[in-house]
């Protein structure tokens, strides 16, 4: 029993450790952000890399997210023969919740994990130290461009994701439930409001910031060679997922 208590306590201390370190890191990044310091060329390069890396996976994920949402809404639609609300039920759940959530988790797995591995390898091979010796601030040169690129891309990808989720939803509704795409589209246009879309966009933006901060923070604090990089990647995706759910909750609460 004492062993268990000690382990649990140790686990919480670990978590507190991580949260504290991330908070300090965020403060340092915020200082650089306020001074508007960052490398422009590196930002463009990262934007491109992040976009290319994640677009296909996001398209596929969004398509299935739309399809899955239609399956769930479809049950009630069929039961009450309320075919004209299909697009609304779909749009509400996908644009606000399912879309940003799944896209965010995939983004964290694809881009965040890659970013941690990249920065982690740079750290353990002393490339980051080399930057410091050259009087280049790693936060301005490495972190800011990535943070900006990931935030911008996550927000844009969410828009792309909404489009493909819509297509996935329409196809599934047509094939499995027999809702005409025209009927689907009409109910979607009529009932889904701009605020549903913006709500999702706000979430995507915040997920982008969270994944960016977490992945850079874990990447730069890697210790202990190749196994350390592996551990950091693991910790990064886990912390990003928790961050995404926590942020999602608070944003849902704030922007009802």
């Amino acid at each position: 029993m004492r062993g268990l208590a000690a382990r649990l306590g140790g686990r919480f201390l670990d978590i507190a450790d991580v949260v504290g370190e991330l908070a300090l890191f965020t403060a340092a990044v915020a200082r650089a952000g306020v001074r508007l310091r960052g490398d422009g060329r590196e930002t463009w390069r990262t934007l491109h890399a992040v976009g290319v890396r994640s677009l296909p996976i996001i398209v596929v994920t969004a398509w299935f997210a739309g399809a899955i949402a239609v399956l769930q809404v479809g049950e009630y639609v069929v039961k009450y023969r309320a075919y004209e609300v299909m697009g609304w039920g779909f749009g509400y759940s996908v644009f606000r919740e399912v879309g940003p959530l799944l896209v965010g988790l995939m983004f964290s797995g694809r881009v965040g994990a890659h970013n941690t591995a990249e920065l982690g390898t740079m750290t353990v091979t002393e490339q980051v130290d080399a930057l410091r010796v050259l009087a280049i601030d790693p936060i301005e040169y490495l972190v800011m461009p990535r943070l900006v690129a990931m935030t911008v891309m996550m927000t844009l990808l969410n828009v792309v994701g909404d489009v493909f989720a819509l297509i996935g939803g329409m196809v599934t509704a047509d094939v499995l439930i027999g809702v005409d795409p025209y009927v689907f589209w009409n109910s979607f246009i009529e009932y889904v409001k701009l605020e549903d879309f913006l709500n999702g966009l706000a979430k995507a933006f915040s997920f982008g910031v969270a994944v960016g901060l977490v992945s850079c923070g874990f990447g730069l604090s890697v210790r202990g060679g190749a196994p350390g990089v592996g551990r950091a990647v693991n910790a990064c995706v886990v912390a990003s997922a928790v961050g995404i759910f926590v942020l999602d909750y608070f944003i849902t609460h704030l922007l009802r």
Binding site: A117, E118, G120, T121, G225, A226, G230
Partner: peptide
């Protein structure tokens, strides 16, 4: 180590 990162 890069290969391990990619695999992960």
């Amino acid at each position: 180590s890069e290969g391990v990162g990619q695999a992960t």
